[in-house]
Design a protein around this nucleic acid. Sequence first.
RNA 1: GGCCCCGUAGCUCAGCUGGAUAGAGCAACUCACUUCUAAUGAGUAGGUCUCAGGUUCGAAUCCUGACGGGGUCACCA
Length: 611
Amino acid sequence: MFLNQTTHWLTQAFEKVYGLTTDPKQLLLSPTKKEFEGDFTIVVFPFVKELKISPEAIGEAIGTFMKENDADIIDFNVVKGFLNMTYSDDFWIRIAKNIPIGSYGTFPKNGKKVMVEFSSPNTNKPLHLGHIRNILLGWSCTKIFEANGYEVIKTQIINDRGIAICKSMLAWKIFANGNTPSSTSIKGDHFVGEYYVRFEKEFKLEYEGFQYTDMGIAVFEKNKKEGQDFDSFFKEYKNTYFNTYSQLGAEAKQMLLDWEAGDPNTIELWKQMNQWVYSGFDTTYNTLGVTFDKVYYESDTYLLGKDAVQYGLTKNVFYKKEDESIWVDLTDVGMDHKIVQRSDGTSVYMTQDLGTAMMRYKDFQVDNMVYTVADEQDYHFQVLFEILKRLGEPYADGLYHLSYGMVELPQGKMKSREGTVVDADDLIAEVIAEAQNNTIERGEVAEMSIEEQNATVKKIGLGALKYFMIKVQPKKRMIFDPKESVDLQGQTGPYIQNAYVRIKSILRKNDSTASNFDKYLSLQPQEKVLMQLVMEYPNVISQACKDYDPSSVANFAYSLAKEFHKFYHDVRILGAESEEAKSFRLHLCNIISDILQRSMATLGIEMPERM
RNA sequence: GGCCCCGUAGCUCAGCUGGAUAGAGCAACUCACUUCUAAUGAGUAGGUCUCAGGUUCGAAUCCUGACGGGGUCACCA
């Protein structure tokens, strides 16, 4: 948008010199690489074929025209097919003056409404590392949408029902002796999680005991596959055992039936345990700085979708088999047959999701819905979106699965059975403690009040953790090394925070109020590089939205911080060689601190004023 | 096996709507704090961009195929 004038003159140049009408896409300018002279570059290769003239000759002719006609361009050079143009200092100063500090890179309201779903935990366990990636992605996505002019509704669907929570409930009933989170001083979600683990432990004991009973041995002999040994058989048989012989399994299943029947005692216990979990989640969300506008509960939605199924039948989107189960045939688009209602008339996961999507549209009339869910569910969402399209839902073209790769540890996948799951609260505490260790001896921080110190350390620790996770493209699998996540140097959140803090320190020390740099006519290369980055920022924000990709914002913020650090090192700001230079550099500092602060806010990362 | 995603420096990642000699950080080694915050900067070293074809003036980027890694193919969620 700052280069419209250049594009205009380039169009004129091709028109006047060669009588050629150009497509604006062919006239895209890019910042000139550091090794070459110039500020912005256009590639003339694409015109060679049409004009049957050498690239060098085209570059020379167009460059000459531009230098003569476009007042901004004071010089040019041609290297092979690249026309590098040098801009006047007036140009840079005009751009710098026109940056709207405070709102730069935010777009006007576009009248569209988008719902973004993220986090969506189960209520039987605390949040873990995988949830953190999900939450950070979803959250920054909402911020990116807002910057692009959307109205955003942040939501999560809580999986608050089912056999898992019944396991926790049962274990609590049997083993807790009436203990509660407050009586034990354990955070609610962890408290409930402990009973889930307890159930699994007790179940395992029961199962191992069963295997050597007469009945267990008989089951093995009857059901084993050809040549299968005892241990591998029972490894596979676990689920079947849970559903058939297990006493604990039977009790948990009975609890689920009681819940579905609305048994008051069961419902009361269920509500109580979920409440504990929610208060625990709230603490974690609060620490991470995320909020939701609307919460859906699976207990409210798990029966939804039956109307949709009936509607789909009448529209011949679905078909019924002889056993009364209902299916959809997606083979014509390279997918499969998929069940949408069981033969006993009950809903499956897909049905719930159909119903929930419809409910959300009814609630908010959104144009778009974004589902932040790990990539193991890629196929599920392909199917879901295809069905919604076939049902003719009005928002069907505005659906997006924000799919992300699993988080793995250096030693491999997280496995709850092996106790390698990284707990969200533990991790957060760890990064903050690490920030504390590295901060305590620094003079700046020592002067602060305790409250201010704590707030700063929290911003730094969380900044490190969040940046570490969000800088990776969503769809890529991620290796999470806890040691690296607390790094405060290099390409990290704190490095970017430090650039901001350095600016703030300068601005605090500045006592001159005059601001006039019209006559500053000796721009430094470091200043031009910074301005080139500044000019890109709105594109970064709009592209991140189109791509659903916060990592591009994270990488941009790093580039800007890096160039600022270099500028800071090479060029005096408060001690500049002239009043005009000082004034311009202070203005540039204001622009950069604004962009750093708001681009990082987009990622859910707060900036300290000192560190 | 079918389909989907990934493969870039020792490690973690950018670059991918085709453009100049493929970039950062970490780790290793040097150097720079009487100077606006050294959580910084400068430098050295590190690459058959998994491989093979193809398209193109030009390919890490697009197409095809192999190889390697992951995911998914339930009347589970």
